[in-house]
Simulated assay, not measured.
Amino acid sequence: MAKKKVLCFGELLLRISPAVNATAEKNPVLVYVGGAEANVATALAGWDVPVKYCTVLPDNFMARHMLHYLEYHNIYTSSVLFSGNRIGLYYLERGADLKGNMVYDRDHSSFSELKRGMIDWDRVLHDVSWFNFSAISPALNENVADACLEALEAASKKDITISVDLNYRSRLWKYGKHPIDVMPALVEHCDVVMGNIWSANTLLGIPVDEHIHDKKSRDAYLSHAVETSKQIIQKFPKCKTVANTFRFDSKDNDILYYTSLFTDNKEFHSQEFTCHGVVDRSGSGDCFMAGLIYGLYNQHAPQELLNYASAAAFGKLQEFGDATGQDVLTVSEMSSK
């Protein structure tokens, strides 16, 4: 009997990436297929988890090329809806952070014109045991946020496990709604929540210590993560697992990365990962989300799945493009060091 699939739902984007301080002849502008949820799907498919993708694209040759990209990576595309006239774009310098030199061009994209009632969720979810989305989609506009809620209601009725990445994009919340007005109603349906103590504050209203940085202590950050996790679980009773990530970039381009997991009233911490310089900062959080789903889907022990997800996320920092190409053996070896 075939395994049930993980469904990733979100906007499939094209990423346009020039090199920083380089001539066009030596470093041409590169184009990647991207989007947070697509990055999760690509990682999971590469780790032999059956996964399909649901999005909205225009019916044109470029959209077909993007679907071929997904299919090449063994991602099922039968749930893609063709509607509208344009593909969403974003521009990001290679090696830059999503918080840095990045520009969105997503207005009036096919996905941004999604409305409740356009997707037959009963058909899309018929072979699905896990539904994954991110806080990026409801940040686009009120109609997309409502379509997300429709999807979550349908998945909940089918007892499908639901996960959310609380990635906050301040450049997107521009339609008159604050995240705190939208996200709690969506997270009420979630079994797994991933983010950090700051996104939990911005998106869900979970208190954050404004002076936490002054403590300059790993123990202080991890203790705060436990408290944040407990408050999320108390506020959203369906949620049973919360993961928090911490990444600190120094002025010298040194990276410090570690994570935590709270489940069954127990806390788990990853090792500390450090390096000098990264190849590409985008997609690391998506890779962690994929690792989290990978471990939970395969019923791995909490510490084991946290080690895997953390190693995958850190390894992604040394890869070009949005999605990881790391295989299970590579990540497992790094996680066991």
Rank of each mutant, 00 (worst) to 15 (best):
D146S: 14
A43C: 13
T228V: 11
I162M: 10
R218P: 01
S270H: 04
I293M: 05
T274N: 05
S270Q: 12
G100T: 11
H108W: 06
G176T: 06
V56C: 07
C148F: 06
I255E: 08
G95F: 00
L57I: 06
R247C: 10
W47R: 01
K3A: 15
D48P: 02
G205A: 07
D252E: 13
K174A: 12
V226F: 08
L149N: 04
H211K: 08
V51F: 02
F248H: 09
C275I: 06
L149R: 04
T241Y: 07
Y90M: 09
H269K: 03
M102D: 15
E37A: 01
R171I: 08
R106Q: 03
D181R: 10
S78P: 00
Y257L: 00
V128D: 02
T161Y: 09
N74K: 14
L114K: 03
E272H: 15
F133R: 06
P302H: 09
Y175E: 04
N27K: 14
L67Q: 14
K26P: 00
V279T: 15
T77H: 08
I255F: 09
D209W: 01
L204Q: 10
A147L: 14
A312H: 06
D286R: 12
V279P: 03
Q234G: 08
F61G: 05
S78M: 06
L305K: 00
A225I: 05
N253S: 13
F9K: 02
Y91D: 04
L296K: 12
A38N: 05
A312W: 02
V103G: 06
